[in-house]
């Protein structure tokens, strides 16, 4: 039987299944969010539109900062005089839960906004999920980046891209 009431297409159902069932589990793309995937995607998309940005723009910005961080080979690097970025790599590859081909390296970037002190953590895979799928991960996921937080820490706004 399909899930009832029907919230989303079977492909999103399959993606949700690939992310693993998450009841109070910490390591999960959905975190402990009980909303169906389509609702998470829709609400985050609304947030992004309200900020005047697009998924690609956010993904692109994160990618650019990650590239700068990689130059440090693990040591922190100062970028644009206001961000301290450092990259860490772990062994292994992760696959995209939406069924895209390709494996993503487990490099993750830690960014600290030197003016506000806030920090942001993201990985290669989470960048792909944001740019290609508009998926910012469920509440409670360790790599959840709400669009508002990204915009606040990175200082992104309608005018800046």
């Amino acid at each position: 039987m399909a899930r009832f009431p029907v919230f989303q297409s079977p492909f999103l159902d399959a993606a949700e299944k690939r992310m693993g069932s998450c009841e109070n589990k910490v390591h999960c793309y959905m975190g402990d969010d009980t909303r169906p995937l389509s609702r998470i995607l829709a609400e985050d998309e609304a947030e992004v539109n309200a900020l005047g940005l697009t998924h690609e723009a956010i993904g692109h910005r994160l990618f650019h900062l990650a590239e700068q961080a990689k130059k440090g080979l693990g040591s922190p690097v100062v970028v644009e005089d206001r961000f301290l970025v450092a990259v860490e790599a772990a062994r292994g590859k992760l696959s995209c839960p939406f069924g895209h081909p390709g494996l993503f390296a487990k490099t993750h970037v830690v960014l600290v906004n030197q003016k506000t002190g806030e920090s942001l953590v993201w990985s290669d895979l989470s960048m792909h999920l944001i740019a290609e799928h508009g998926f910012y991960q469920g509440k409670g996921s360790p790599y959840r980046l709400s669009p508002k937080k990204i915009a606040a820490v990175l200082g992104l706004s309608r005018a800046s891209h």
Partner: peptide, 13 residues
């Protein structure tokens, strides 16, 4: 209406 509302988001589906 149920699957109509959910699936009509995507043309191929």
């Amino acid at each position: 209406m149920c699957s109509f509302l959910a699936i009509s988001k995507d043309l191929k589906s």
